[in-house]
Design a protein around this nucleic acid. Structure first.
Lengths: 218, 218
DNA sequence: AAGTATTTTCGTACGTGTACGAATTCACTC
DNA sequence: GAGTGAATTCGTACACGTACGAAAATACTT
């Protein structure tokens, strides 16, 4: 209602809220580091920051939101790592990225699971249509690397479709390795690399049509 | 300890136990049909068959085991369906199977999730190494169809590796579709078919080495 | 038939996520 | 300042999965 300034009182409130949220998140991180993923409970978290258990829900919709926020941090650091080590050759960069992504999933199965294997109940309706691609920095990078390959004439077809397929195949491999540690995949690293090579070979051999008509992409 | 006959008293006990287990499973099925997947609780299940809640644990290790048993039934019927509709042409049969498998996953996301996207804590140690491939009838069929293609000379390479890769790719696609219903995959059916075609193209183009040395396969 | 061992049943209790709504704090107007 | 409306905090309570171990039922031995 106020035109010239958006009422700095409200701003301060928001800043405060963000601070408490960050404090909660830090405590959650700590708790997970100390007691493992299962060790994080709302009650323990609340006690650690001196709040009542139910107060946590003023800052996070539910427990899953906390775990997701933690996992997002991990993916952020993955994205930094991915950006750091990019071979010049576009195809090599893409391949390297896929194997790094996979390695991350295997090293951080909990985070991988909460972000990519758990129901996406974040559907504030009327919200963006392309949730994970927009929010997950690793997926954003994937698009970039695929685009670079196309610019170099290594692949052709629709970038979004291509990246989505590659993500699908990579995700399938990673998630199976996570879920079935006793299945005879043989050497995990070998299996991952074979997966990626077969996927890339398929994408090279088969035309990749756009998934969506041009006007539907946001 | 008894040589000639394994003591029919124990047998009867076991039969009885199996009966009660089946009764519990039937009640669980009913409950899920009536109130949905989340509607199944140990307490409700016990009440329905007239037992105390804790008695259920004499027949199932935990809640997940019940869900898994229910899901296994669904996969059984999938396998029957898959076996029924097999084109003569081996490659067409394999393709058909993949799309049917995927369709099943999308139509039964809860069952798919409990069997293929949830931790494999069924690790009675010293147990079979190849859990899902042995237990899931759909995966067994996959091996058969892949073998048929190889017999026909359509593909070559290691059958187990080939099937595992195909499963990975199919699973990746299905599980992403389940987990991110709002991601812009475009037409789901189209996306699935493109996935499968790209996967098959890759497997055709790229050599598929064995995952395991010959002596390691059980 | 009596006694002993073993298996099966389940009463109690704990810690969990979180719905609900009352209590409290805060921002703002007069 | 006092009063009012809105946002924030949290006390209480519920249903959940299930650990633990006592109670009851059953099987086996003598």
């Amino acid at each position: 209602m106020n035109d010239p300034k958006p009422l700095s009182a409200q701003d301060r409130r928001e800043r405060q809220k963000a601070e408490v949220r960050a404090e909660l998140l830090a405590a959650a991180h700590e708790l997970v580091r100390e007691e493992g993923y299962e060790g994080l409970t709302i009650r323990k978290l609340a006690k650690r920051v001196g709040y009542a258990p139910m107060s946590v829900y003023s800052y996070f919709a539910d427990k899953h939101a906390i775990l997701h926020a933690i996992a997002d941090d991990a993916f952020e650091s993955l994205a930094r790592r991915l950006e750091a080590q990019a071979p010049k050759e576009p195809l090599a960069a893409l391949r390297k990225m896929m194997t790094e992504y996979a390695a991350f999933g295997l090293e951080n199965p909990n985070e991988y699971r909460t972000v990519f294997m758990t129901d996406d109940h974040t559907h504030d309706p009327g919200q963006s249509i392309a949730e994970p691609e927009k929010r997950n920095p690793a997926l954003q990078l994937l698009l970039k690397r695929v685009q670079a390959c196309m610019d170099a004439g290594i692949f052709q077809g629709d970038v979004h479709a291509f990246a989505t397929l590659l993500w699908s195949f990579g995700h399938g491999t990673v998630s199976l390795l996570i879920t079935f540690p006793h299945y005879p995949f043989g050497d995990r690293q070998k299996f991952l690399e074979m997966s990626m090579d077969v996927a890339l070979a398929g994408l090279k051999a088969h035309p990749v049509d756009p998934l969506m008509p041009p006007e539907a992409r946001c």
